[in-house]
């Protein structure tokens, strides 16, 4: 879902996320069945508890069953006056691009019509610059994590990303610039016993990452839709390309979500990250009923293990902070890495 379209309309895109705790989801359970993933139910729970009362509209994408059904519920019970869903093909072929381009154009038209605004090409180009700036800065921040002792922890990076989802983008860029500047100064060096990558389902709770890091793991990269998949690829901002076209290309061709076909595209990118960030082990957190991730997990695990990278699989509920059993598993995983290092 290209946020740029909303921004260029003079509105503030807020990324819907759930609660940073494992809530009872009582409100949400009254509306969606227990096999709706807890990420979506957690979002819905916050909506029902009036935590998103400031929203004027909801734009979603038909990415998987749970969000598309959340959109149905949203519309049926009329949570906001404006509701729109964008269709996203699962392939990256020419005809898939035509379809998706049409969908992005459709979102633009609908926003213009509903809110009586004009989204000019000029505004879109300006927005693309702003959003690309975020991507460049995040790339710089992530690059710093390639060093032996990065200036920032994985939990802190997730905090930063979370802020970006909810803030006016220009303001976020300003803060991010300061952060990258400070982080580059070489004054801070975070140490950890092992370099880890986190991947899997949507993750927003920094406490979860902190648990891993408190036990001695150092999260140096992720393969998450709330992490690299969010910012990885730039939008083509050359003046000769139509901005809607540029956006559609970027969002469909972006670092693929597990829903995309063929899956190898994502596997290869994940393996490349493991190499580039010199990852010792991977922590895969799969939110229960996140079936896209669940189907790919055994296939990705085998590929990682062939590369000699052990994988810790954690079946969790969205919002989990990493207590009890999760902590035990992470600790055992780190102890196992230690044992391997000694051999």
């Amino acid at each position: 879902m290209p946020e740029e379209i909303i921004h260029a309309a003079g509105m503030v895109p807020i990324r819907l996320t759930g609660d940073s705790q494992e809530p009872a989801l009582e409100e949400a359970n009254a509306y969606m069945y227990i096999n709706t993933c807890s990420f979506v139910r957690s979002c819905l729970d916050l909506v029902l508890r009036n935590q998103y009362h400031f929203l004027d509209g909801f734009v979603s994408a038909a990415t998987c069953d749970c969000p598309r059904r959340l959109t149905d519920v949203w519309k049926h019970y009329d949570f906001t006056p404006f509701v729109h869903i964008v269709d996203v093909p699962r392939k990256m072929t020419k005809s898939a691009h035509d379809l998706y381009h049409n969908e992005v154009q459709g979102l633009k038209d609908r926003l213009e019509g509903f809110f009586d605004v004009e989204i000019t090409d000029e505004a879109l180009r300006q927005t693309i610059k702003v959003f690309n700036r975020t991507r460049e800065l995040l790339k710089e921040l992530y690059d710093l994590r390639k060093s032996d002792c990065p200036p920032i922890t994985g939990a802190e990076v997730l905090e930063v990303l979370n802020a970006g989802f909810k803030m006016p983008r220009e303001e976020f860029n300003g803060l991010l610039e300061r952060l990258v500047g400070e982080a580059s100064s070489g004054q801070r060096a975070v140490k950890g016993k092992f370099r880890l990558m986190i991947n899997g389902s949507p993750l927003n709770n920094p406490e979860f990452v902190k648990t891993i890091e408190d036990l001695g793991g150092l999260v140096v990269v992720d393969e998450l839709c709330t992490g690299v998949r969010h910012w990885w690829d730039l939008v083509d901002d050359s003046p000769e390309i139509d901005p809607v076209e540029a956006l559609s290309r970027r969002y469909l061709n972006n670092f693929p979500c597990p829903r995309m076909f063929p899956p190898e595209e994502r596997f290869n990118r994940a393996l490349q990250l493991v190499k580039d960030y010199r990852v010792d082990g991977v922590v895969s957190e799969v939110v229960r009923y996140c079936v896209h991730c669940a189907h790919d997990q055994p296939l990705l695990r085998r590929r990682l293990e062939i590369q000699g990278v052990p994988v810790l699989e954690l079946s969790i509920e969205y919002g989990a902070s990493g207590t009890g059993q999760i902590m035990t598993r992470v600790q055992a995983f780190l102890e196992m890495l230690e044992g391997r290092a000694r051999r």
Binding site: S315, R329, A332, E335, M336, G339, R340
Partner: peptide, 11 residues
């Protein structure tokens, strides 16, 4: 007696 691999059931 060093762990080389492990799997736990879900919660």
């Amino acid at each position: 007696g060093r762990v080389t691999n492990f799997i736990m059931n879900d919660k």
